[in-house]
């Protein structure tokens, strides 16, 4: 059984279309990264899954329950870190946790939860005095109450320092090892790449890609990125033009004297030769695996090109 199943979900806010027929399956036990630029519709999708917002069309199930029919049963087995939430300023961290423990009929220790997210010494202070990062940790601890089968985390690293972000990743892995499915959204690719099994990319309300991290890399923009540093910047334009002329090359971007080239893995020499022939001297070059950033950029660009063609 799939943990999350969206079937043609469409959401319109007035004349604005936030989601257009999104089909998506998240398997049980996987860590699913939900990627997309701000405004792509990630939060709307999550809000629909949690029944905060009702879809205009389509249907969805979470943990086998219909999102409209049985939202309460879904929430009983789901831990949520919502986006744009606010804590209760006048209540302490402990009161927040006790409330969630009681609400979920769970049998956990507030101190242990606070310990786990690193706010144990602040647990008896009012949450209004917490920093943004501490509030985020508190709400994460609240999401963990009752060993949920599904964790839905909306932009979980927002407001966290690098230590907090690392802790977040550790907890995501631990929860996944325990057996929980983790669904989290982000516009920061590094976060997703580091922990996810599967990634879906949402753009302009459409799911434009869904694959494993490795599969996505393969699918997009060849398989190698070549970074070429020129000795001086005068010939950059000529070098770019020369490289673009090669069949094996899919993308070229220039930043000062550095050229980033996406190309087939055996095209390295051809690229370097093209640079030399254009009159520039290569000071340095390195190859690297495609980062998700570039995958993302490639997908996004592809989408924009298609859109431009439609418009034209």
């Amino acid at each position: 059984m799939a943990a999350i199943e969206l079937d043609g979900v469409t959401k319109q806010f007035g004349s604005l279309t936030a989601l257009q027929g999104v089909d998506l399956t998240v398997e049980e036990g996987e860590i699913f990264g939900f990627l997309g630029p701000n405004g792509a519709g990630k939060s709307t999708t999550i809000n629909i899954l949690l029944d905060f917002v009702r879809a205009t069309d389509g249907s969805a199930t979470v943990l086998g329950h219909d999102i409209h029919e049985e939202p309460k049963r879904i929430r009983a087995r789901t831990g949520v870190l919502p986006e744009g939430y606010d804590v209760y300023d006048r209540l302490t961290g402990r009161q927040h946790l006790s409330f969630v423990i009681e609400s979920k009929d769970a049998d956990e220790d507030a101190d242990e939860l606070a310990e786990r997210v690193g706010i144990a010494d602040a647990i008896d202070r009012k949450a209004g005095g917490y920093s943004k990062g501490m509030q985020q940790r508190l709400v994460l601890a609240m999401a963990l109450v009752g060993e949920p089968d599904l964790l839905i985390l909306d932009e979980p690293t927002t407001g966290l320092d690098p230590n907090g972000a690392r802790l977040m990743r550790e907890i995501i892995r631990e929860e996944n090892e325990r057996g929980a499915t983790v669904f989290f959204s982000s516009h920061i690719l590094g976060q997703v790449e580091a922990v996810c099994d599967t990634v879906g990319i949402l753009q302009d309300g459409r799911l434009i890609a869904k694959d494993s991290v490795a599969g996505l890399r393969e699918a997009a923009a060849g398989d190698t990125v070549l970074r070429v540093t020129l000795a001086d910047g005068d010939g950059t334009d000529a070098a770019v033009a020369a490289i673009e002329g090669l069949d094996e090359v899919s993308t070229v971007t220039a930043d000062g004297t550095t050229l980033t080239v996406g190309c087939d893995s055996d095209a390295k020499m051809a690229v370097l030769n093209a640079v030399e022939e254009s009159g520039s001297e290569v000071a340095n070059f390195e190859t690297e695996e495609t980062s998700l950033d570039e995958v993302f950029a490639a997908y996004t660009e592809q989408q924009e090109q298609e859109q431009a063609e439609v418009d034209a």
Partner: peptide
Amino acid sequence: GSLKILLSLP
């Protein structure tokens, strides 16, 4: 936005 926390609960 605290309503989202409340309604995330059962």
